[in-house]
Design a protein around this nucleic acid. Sequence first.
DNA 1: CTCCTCTATATCGGTTTATGATATATCCAA
DNA 2: TTGGATATATCATAAACCGATATAGAGGAG
Lengths: 120, 120
Amino acid sequence: MSRERQIDDDLLENLPLPTAAFFVLFALAEGEKHGYRIMQDIRELSGGTFSVGPATLYTTIKKLSDQGFIGETTDSGEDRRRIYALTRTGKRLLDAEFRRQQQLLDLARRKRILRIGEQK
Amino acid sequence: MSRERQIDDDLLENLPLPTAAFFVLFALAEGEKHGYRIMQDIRELSGGTFSVGPATLYTTIKKLSDQGFIGETTDSGEDRRRIYALTRTGKRLLDAEFRRQQQLLDLARRKRILRIGEQK
DNA sequence: CTCCTCTATATCGGTTTATGATATATCCAA
DNA sequence: TTGGATATATCATAAACCGATATAGAGGAG
């Protein structure tokens, strides 16, 4: 349990996630995907209000991959596509980011700054 | 109402907010404050996990001020402090950002990606 | 067959955002 | 009187973001 704590503390240093990184992890949380698909799904996830272009996408993928938060599936093989998936740590990171965001929203409600969604 | 819509559409282009801008607006939503106080309160709001230094703070304040999302209170007078407050538009912007975040969290729950806080 | 669009990955050049360090000055308490 | 907290500000640099462009395969329209 203190080991779990330690890992979470390490993750905490990566929060708040950069927007692009957050969305890439979010998209991959639905299942493994290739880059172009991630790009499309981010547009959909955000309701069309947000999108990443190839420059942001592939540099973000590179970084997340180097950090060990996502990994390329080994079975890619013949295809020109490169399939990515969340690692265990990547899942935890995304979860920590979600919790961080929710805590802030809850705080905003307690402070009466945000007045929507107060139904217990 | 279509006028309200239009204004919201303008605000939408500013989302997602940069992290520092989000926290400055959040801090000011509690009431008018001077820069240094905003800095302290951001640390507190984030539970100590996030903080902005003077460089980020004052450049962010400058930008938000130029954009008309915050304003300097005219009555500052003698003091060396410069007091800032949210403008009407600034309030709306923060609210739009909160709603954007909450919608994503709700979506994550519907997709069973996020499994906390599901109590209706 | 050729052209166009979509898929798919990648990088270049430049802007925006973030940050540690430093500077300046006031205030107060040890 | 010195040292820490308050308070604002900028410099130089790094991280994040993004439009444009490049390359290439795949599929359909004319």
